[in-house]
Design a protein around this nucleic acid. Structure first.
Lengths: 247, 247
DNA sequence: CGTCCCCTTGAATGAAGTCAATACGCGTGG
DNA sequence: CCACGCGTATTGACTTCATTCAAGGGGACG
C-alpha cells in the first residue's frame, strides 16, 4: 500500500536501492494536503512544481465558459502530473482533489538532480509519462467511439487495473470515491444516464458498486463488453532488459 | 512554406543559426515517402524512430475489434510523433498518411545528440510535446462536452491555427484534405451528420469548404460558436526570455 | 461508359438528454 | 431526540440530437 509510485515504476523497470531512496527522499521534500473538491492548481496559474499524488484521488479538468465541466484525467496514488510543465507559461486546465489528497511537490531542481544521477528513474518517469499520454489517447477513443455502456465499462476496467498497479486493490475490489456526477463529467454523459448505465452493469452482474466500493467479480467479462485492450497501459515490464544487477 | 518545424518552434523560442542547421540536418538524414492512406507505422510494431512530418497530413488512429475507427490526432507539416517513443516495447496505435506525406525519421542516436548539444532545441521540443499533450486533452473536452456543431467548429479552428503556425495558410484559407468520413472518425459522429453539420456552418457563412480548400472568413466568429480558447496551443512565445543573443 | 469514391438528402429509428419528482443518508442545530 | 437541509442516487415521462437506412448525384479515372 505504501509508495505507490515505486510500485508502479517497477512494473516497468527494476530500481536499485539507491533509486528507491532517491524517490522516497524527493517525495518527502515538500508535502501538501488538500480537502476533497479543493483545487491543487488552477487554470491560468504558472506551474512551478511537478505534483505527485501519494494518497487519494485527484483529477485534471477543464470548464467551458458556459459552465460545462469535463474531467480529463484521474490521478491515482503514485501518479505524477506532467513532467516538464515548468516549460509552459501557464496552466491551460485545473487540477483538483476528488477525495482528500496528499501531494508531493517536486521542484525543478530536484527533478533535474534526479535526471542526472538516476538514469533508471529518468527512464521510468518517461515511461510513466508516455503511458499517461496513451491513456489520454484511449479516452479520446472511448468518448469518440464507444456507447454509454461500453464507455462506462472501459473506464471502470482502466481505473481498476491502474489501482492494481499502484497496490490499491484487494482481491476483486477497490475503493471507488467518484460520484455519479463526476462519472458523467468524465464520460460526457448526463447524471441520469450514468445512473441507468450503472444499473445495467449491475443487472448483468458485471459490477457491484455500493458504499464507495467497487467490486468487479469477473474482470475479463467487463473487459469484453468494453472492448478493453490493456496494451495501452504498457504494464508488461518492457524495460526488464534494463534490470539493475544491484538490489 | 519551408521548414515548418523550425517555423513552429520559433513560436516558442528563438533558435540560433547552429540550432536551425542542426534541425535541417537531422530532418534530411532519413526521409521516407508514403502514399495517401498508407500506414507509416502500425499498432503492434516496435517504434525505432521519431517521425517528423515535413509535408502532407498524417494521423494517429486506433481501430476497435469490431472495426470502428477513431482518429486520435492529426500530424500537420512540422509535427513530431512522440519523443521518447523508443522506450515503449510496441505501438498501441497506428499512424497513417492522410494525404501523400514526406516523413523524416529521427533515430535515437540523432535525438540524443541533439539533446546534448542543443539545449534550446531540447527545450523547444519539450514544449512541442507538451502542446501535443494539451491538444489531446482538448480533444477529450471536445468529444465529451461539445455538441456536433461546436465540435466541428472547434476542430476547424484548431487545425487552421496550427496550420498558420506552420506557415501553411494564406490569408483566410488553407488546404483541407479531410473527407467527411475522416471528419466523422475524428469527431465521433456519422458521415451523414458531418455533412449536415458542415452545411449548417456554411449556411451561417462561418466557413467555405470546397475543392479541398477551407476558408474561414471570420475566425473570431467561428471560435465563438465553438467556445474555442486558444490558450491550450501555448503559441505566445512563452520562451522568449530564453532568446539567444546570437543569430 | 462504367465503376468507385465522396457528397448529399429524406425518412424512420434510436440513444441519450432534460425535466421533475422522490428517496436516502448524514450532519447540524434546535 | 428529532427536524431540517443538503448532496447524492433513483425513477418516470417526454424531447431532442444524432444514427441508420436508403437512394441519388457528381466527378475522376481506367
Amino acid at each position: 500500500m505504501k509508495r505507490p509510485l515505486i510500485r508502479k515504476l517497477e512494473k516497468f523497470t527494476r530500481l536499485s536501492r539507491a533509486d528507491k531512496e532517491m524517490l522516497v527522499r524527493i517525495a518527502a521534500q515538500r508535502i501538501r494536503r488538500f480537502a476533497a473538491r479543493e483545487d491543487i492548481i488552477h487554470e491560468g496559474e504558472k506551474p512551478e512544481f511537478i505534483n505527485l499524488v501519494s494518497e487519494g484521488w485527484a483529477c485534471r479538468y477543464k470548464t467551458l465558459e458556459d459552465g460545462r465541466r469535463q474531467i480529463i484525467a484521474f490521478f491515482l496514488p503514485g501518479d505524477l502530473c506532467d513532467l516538464n510543465v515548468f516549460i509552459l507559461k501557464e496552466m491551460d486546465h485545473s487540477i483538483g482533489a476528488v477525495t482528500p489528497v496528499v501531494v508531493s511537490e517536486i521542484s525543478r531542481a530536484a527533478f533535474d538532480e534526479m535526471m542526472i544521477g538516476h538514469p533508471r528513474i529518468t527512464q521510468a518517469l518517461w515511461w510513466e509519462s508516455l503511458v499517461a499520454a496513451a491513456i489520454q489517447r484511449e479516452w479520446t477513443v472511448n468518448l469518440g467511439q464507444r456507447d454509454a455502456l461500453e464507455r462506462m465499462a472501459h473506464l471502470l476496467c482502466e481505473l481498476f487495473i491502474r489501482l492494481e498497479a499502484a497496490g490499491c486493490t484487494s482481491d476483486h475490489s477497490c475503493e471507488f470515491p467518484l460520484t455519479q456526477t463526476e462519472l458523467g463529467e468524465t464520460l460526457g454523459m448526463s447524471t441520469v444516464h450514468v445512473n441507468r448505465t450503472l444499473q445495467e452493469l449491475r443487472a448483468s452482474n458485471l459490477i457491484v458498486l455500493k458504499d464507495r466500493t467497487l467490486t468487479i467479480p469477473n474482470l475479463k467479462a467487463l473487459q469484453d463488453i468494453a472492448l478493453f485492450n490493456p496494451n495501452y497501459l504498457h504494464l508488461d515490464r518492457e524495460g526488464s532488459h534494463l534490470d539493475a544487477n544491484e538490489e
